[in-house]
Design a protein around this nucleic acid. Structure first.
Lengths: 228, 228
DNA sequence: GGCACCAGAATATGATCAAATTCTCAGGTG
DNA sequence: CACCTGAGAATTTGATCATATTCTGGTGCC
């Protein structure tokens, strides 16, 4: 997702007006982010043409975009697959998430009003519910929503864009780990973030975010160590 | 450019084997990075089909990739153009460059051998020459080469990838400013970086890099303030 | 000034060609 | 006798193009 005036917002007024390649991109993106697609899984153009009932060109363009996002990987020969993360990759992702997302939390803090906090609380409740009921897909969606909603207030389109692609990279792995360990193992660190926002304390928000990021990524590291 | 096993390296063994969309991407990318394209300039598919003598599909895919890279901008209606940076954008870019590129310098330091330093020195000499002769295009190319060569030793594909896209974002603006102010105004901070590398001092390298980044971006900020 | 029309560009399809993987079937070996 | 190996065919899949369709923006008429 680019930070430019999103074509997605035009969707609400008229869904039919979204170009096919945009629809395909959104669908594929969601599948990657929320785990329909497993790391290592091969992605074929013709397969998607059938699955998503789209033409070849739109699928092709969507795949190129996602490759550029780091959400898909061009395997040298002409095959495309979902990337399989190694420990080194995770280490880089941790650094990047920490610096970028903490900064986003820091920048968002002064712009967050009470209405915005209410919205975040709502998402967090949905998150709790997903955790309680063991709804892995719901957990992933709400967790992503929480971060995205927060960052949208940071007035930092470029940094938000970077953060977004980072999520695309570890999304599939997060799904695998969640599915393996269950949602119970994920404590919810968002309460601390909300606290910091209420107090309008940017540094505290950044710190809480760092904890959230570290905790989340540690789960992935642990999960991947055992599994693959 | 994605960090995955690059199709570009296959280019050396057999240039003809590069797919058309990859070639188009590289060409367009270079044009954006090194300033053939001016910020705000409209980019049409059919125009590129003629200019680059490629088919429509490859051009289309290359454009999608570059939009995802942030190097091009989708203007809502079906127009595509080179983004025009505002002061807020530059501020974000500065933060991102500082954190990411300093870290890359830090990580590269321990892996740099004397042969690698020689290579960097060579690039830096070419850079000096470009500055001395007022060769703006050469300056841009060599400056980019220096950073890219350095980061390639950091063993951090994801971070390098992020840095690469950052360059794509401010490349066109850098070109405009350079053309306006001339190369004379650009002092060369790379000597300090090289010094740090020779001493194998990661923190010093990071610091030198920060100075280089700040100095370069300040030029752009200043240049854009007056111009547009 | 507003509306209809027109040109040009982008989107999307399906066909065609090229490449790569997979499958199959011998042939040989332990 | 079972299994591994490798050459070659068959099939799947990707790359590219030519073409039809839809949409945007501008122009000129009323």
């Amino acid at each position: 997702m680019t930070e430019t005036t999103s074509p997605a917002q035009a969707a609400h007024e008229n869904p039919a007006k979204l170009p096919a390649h945009e629809i395909v991109y959104q669908k594929l993106r969601a599948q990657i982010l929320f785990g329909e697609l497993v790391p290592g899984q091969a992605v074929t153009i013709q397969g998607l043409v059938e699955t998503l009932e789209a033409g070849m060109t739109p699928v092709r363009e969507a795949i190129r975009r996602l490759i550029s996002d780091g959400a898909l990987m061009f395997q040298g020969n002409r095959r495309v697959s979902v990337p399989l993360l190694g420990p080194e990759d995770l280490e880089e992702l941790i650094f990047a998430r920490k610096t970028i997302e903490c900064e986003l939390a820091r920048r968002a803090t002064p712009h967050i009003g009470t209405a915005d906090i209410d919205e975040l609380v709502m998402i967090d409740h949905a998150l709790d519910k997903a955790i309680a009921t063991g709804d892995v897909a719901g957990y992933l969606v709400q967790n992503y929503s929480f971060h995205t909603a927060l960052y949208s207030h940071a007035n930092a389109p470029i940094l938000s864009d970077i953060a977004d692609r980072l999520w695309l990279r570890f999304g599939p792995s997060l799904r695998v780990v969640s599915g393996r360990l269950g949602t119970q193992s994920f404590p919810d660190r968002h309460k601390d973030i909300l606290d910091a926002l209420r107090r309008k304390d940017p540094e505290m928000a950044a710190l809480a975010m760092e904890r959230d990021v570290c905790q989340g990524m540690d789960q992935v590291v642990e999960g991947l160590r055992g599994g693959n």
